[in-house]
């Protein structure tokens, strides 16, 4: 059984205020060299038989993504070779050091040399297949800064 992964991202021209809020919080972790953060969704589909990319793409277009505001990519991931449960921890990979840090401390600053996210297991490497017309993720320009503008009209 294999897994189809659908990644859904807001189109580059659509404002992502939640991503901006995350970007705004990064300096509290001592990270000051991030130009922009954008947040998307990852959907994992387990077919009972062979993974059906065409069907997954139809699902993504009809339901999982709203093509008015979102782009998506569809790919097959070899689930059989990835550890089913533990893999999540490895991927999300929050720095596991300092387990005895007191609960209430000043904002923890990351060592500049510490990777924020652990490398993905090589076994789980996937073949990306972009949807029709979808721009590659690295082509997304940074969002225009909108902090302090517009919005609250009260």
């Amino acid at each position: 059984m294999a897994r189809v992964v659908v990644d859904v991202m807001l189109k580059p021209e659509i404002l992502d205020p939640a991503g901006q809020a995350v970007a705004g919080a990064l300096p509290r972790l001592g990270v000051t060299d991030v130009a922009s953060v954008r947040i998307g969704k990852r959907v994992e589909i387990e077919f009972t038989g062979e993974p059906d990319l065409a069907k997954a793409r139809q699902l993504a277009d009809a339901l999982l993504a709203n093509p008015v505001i979102e782009d998506f990519t569809v790919r097959v991931e070899e689930a059989g070779r990835a550890a089913p449960a533990g893999a999540i921890d490895a991927i999300s990979g929050v720095d596991p050091v300092e387990p005895d840090v007191p609960a209430v401390v000043a904002p923890r600053r990351l060592d500049p040399g510490t990777p924020l996210v652990a490398a993905r297991p090589v076994e789980a490497a996937a073949v990306a297949e972009p949807a029709d017309g979808a721009a590659p993720a690295d082509a997304v320009p940074p969002a225009a800064p909108a902090e302090g503008e517009g919005g609250d009209g009260q």
Binding site: L15, A18, A21, N66, V68, I69, G150, G151, D152, Q154
Partner: peptide, 22 residues
């Protein structure tokens, strides 16, 4: 109605992220 494509466009998170009630 927008999701059903009966109306054009889409509705996204409020620009300022706050729920607005007034």
């Amino acid at each position: 109605l927008c999701e059903a494509h009966l109306l054009p466009g889409a509705l996204t998170r409020n620009e300022h992220l706050h729920f607005r009630n007034r």
